[in-house]
Design a binder for these strands. Sequence first.
DNA 1: AATGCTTGCAACCGCCCTCAT
DNA 2: AATGAGGGCGGTTGCAAGCAT
Length: 315
Amino acid sequence: MRAPEETAVITSEKTAAGGGAISGAVEGHVSLKKGPWTASEDAILLEYVRKHGEGNWNAVQKNSSLQRCGKSCRLRWANHLRPNLKKGSFSPEEEIRILQLHAKLGNKWARMAAQLPGRTDNEIKNYWNTRIKRRQRAGLPLYPPEIQRRVAFMNQRPGSLMLLENQNHQNNFLTSVSPPASTLFSNDGGGDYLHGNFELSVPPPPQLQSSLFSMKMELPSTQFFLGFTGDEKTIPPPTLRQGSNGHFDVILQEPQGVGESFNSGLLYEQFPAGYQAMAELPLSSKCSGGDPLCKMGGSDFSIGCENAGAGRNEI
DNA sequence: AATGCTTGCAACCGCCCTCAT
DNA sequence: AATGAGGGCGGTTGCAAGCAT
């Protein structure tokens, strides 16, 4: 693959027979260029957005020397020029996230991109399409086993809340508590994954009259977490309180008037604005490498176990 | 070295939705 | 209510680099 700058130099010399074709050369109409963007075109678009801001893309061609249609400008800006774009290949964490989001959302690339900061829908779509082809060729299922188990769990328990492992568990934790632990883990033979079930008793929210949420942990054997993730701008971090009888109170609060989803990654529930849930979480997990820990930090919350030892956890 | 195949990715196309008129 | 413009989205295509033969 050529670097974008190099591509720009080459394609700028192409004629209408190839990339960089001029379209719309109809009498009375301005000719609009198609094909790969050149560095000079990028500069014009960047300057235009700096002066006028995003949006109203059809005005770009009218108010600048850029001979591109509005759609092309919007795409170029969104996928390549806008700030804070991540470039380069996806990290392992991002790949896992894409798998989980696809299992939940299907081919909703824009919605997936909204949950992957710095990534574009086009990038995710390209990644997914190449991955599909690779797995199909290899005769592999679309989703890895751990993702399939998550989806199957949710299908069995509609209305349940399933949470992701905390991807930031190693950083920025503010508190650490050692809960009383009694082992109630089971192993479903899923290789490196342990499964545990928690019953959360919550005041039934209006649209979910069930008094129980079931939460399932599926986490690597060396470290496993029950995690919440959320957008700090809209979702206050859950608060944790050690209660009586070996229970922990997990307080999830949705800000009044926001009405945004509580984002727990793979699968989540829509909570109404102003909804507040206090969850009693019987902490019944233990792993052989050490006592479970409860951690909080930023918008993340996790209850889990860091197992320093190699090999399998004791069940 | 030449050729063909695979892969990754940028960009376009067409459909659809929203909103202003 | 009807219509058109603007923009978002998912599907698809085309091209160049990398790789295998």
